[in-house]
Simulated assay, not measured.
Amino acid sequence: MALSAEESGRLTGLLTEHAERITQRWTEIAAASLRGRLSQAELRRQVQDLHRGMVSAGQGGAFDLDSEPAAELRAVLAEISRGRARQGFTASETAVSVYAVKEVLLGLMEAEAGTVTLRDYVAFTALVDQMGLFTVESFVRTRESLIADQAEQLLELSTPVVKIWEGVVAVPLVGTLDSARAQVVMERLLQTLVDTGSPYAIIDITGVPAVDTQVAQHILKTVVAARLMGADCIISGIRPQIAQTIVALGIEFGDIATKASLADALRHVLRLSGVDAGRRHPRRES
């Protein structure tokens, strides 16, 4: 929704002539909807930035939110939306702070009945609605970006690669192994193999609730990738139920060593390395 040059001029004149009154009342209305979750000083600064952006956009002739003169206003709306999204506000709370100017303009127009018409008010509110929609869209994009970042961080935290012995690293998997997570597992394992120079890697699936054909394929791809890096892989955590499922599905791990537990896998690797992994019994006092 764009205002004509005449409508834009009347709106700009109204905003400029009553600048202090508008920002004060706008801040009060917006503050009531936020219930003290934002400081009065910060909210007033945001309202003043919005007011200044509207005046700047209206001075360019026809007031169009998509136009070049409205670039400052769009930047302010986007900045407020991003900040509110990171601070935990809702999209409604963010948009209401913009829509609050409607009530302020209505009060001013009632006082300026001879200058501003009802048609002007309808046009002004349609423009404010467009500003609110722009705010919500910016808010949603920011929230989606935050959620994606958090999901990636959780994915990395849920797939740790740890060094459990000299030359031995382990990947304890917990939960479902989908394509996205399998890719993270592979990347982290390969990077750890490069960083540590470890010739052995243990993939422990004790915490994987079920192994189907897709999960098995992900594991096999990880093993092949590790072998290309010069590391031998051992799969541990093969519980009886999982073993039966693997047999029933006809999944073959080929020459990949499999063990029932992480401890068994570590003992196997130590034997391959020539390390005495036998149990040591305490000496008896004579």
Rank of each mutant, 00 (worst) to 15 (best):
S33H: 06
T213C: 10
V247R: 05
V55E: 02
T27S: 08
A180G: 11
L105T: 02
G175D: 00
S56P: 12
E6D: 11
V116E: 04
I147S: 02
V211I: 13
A30Y: 07
D178S: 10
Q59M: 08
R45C: 14
L270H: 06
D64L: 02
I205Q: 06
K163Q: 15
V194W: 05
T90M: 11
L77S: 03
A225Y: 06
V122H: 06
A277I: 09
A31Y: 03
R283L: 15
A265I: 03
I22E: 04
T117Q: 05
Q130T: 10
T117A: 07
A91P: 14
E103P: 15
A111K: 11
A62I: 02
V140E: 00
Y121L: 12
I234D: 13
E79L: 12
R181V: 12
G132M: 01
F134K: 00
G9H: 10
G175W: 00
V136Q: 04
A2L: 12
R37K: 11
I29G: 07
V223E: 03
I234G: 13
I80C: 09
R227W: 04
L108V: 11
T142Y: 07
E68K: 00
L266T: 08
L50F: 13
A260R: 05
H268F: 14
Q59E: 13
S97A: 13
E93N: 01
T90S: 11
K259L: 07
E28I: 15
T117E: 03
E285S: 12
V104A: 05
G274D: 03
R280A: 14
K259N: 04
R143W: 01
G230M: 04
A31D: 04
V208F: 05
R21V: 09
V98A: 05
V208I: 12
L154I: 14
E156N: 11
T258W: 00
L193G: 07
I164F: 13
E28T: 15
G61K: 01
T27W: 02
V47Q: 01
A260P: 11
A201I: 07
V174C: 09
I80V: 13
G36F: 06
P209F: 05
F134Y: 12
Q191H: 10
A75R: 02
Q241S: 09
Q130W: 08
R25Q: 14
L34N: 02
F139C: 06
R10T: 07
H281T: 14
L189Y: 04
L220R: 12
A70R: 01
A216D: 05
Q48W: 05
S179M: 04
H281F: 15
V101D: 02
E72A: 14
M186S: 07
E252R: 06
E252F: 11
A113Q: 06
L177C: 08
V96K: 07
A70L: 03
T258K: 00
R143T: 10
R44M: 15
I205F: 07
D212W: 15
S179L: 08
M131I: 13
R283K: 09
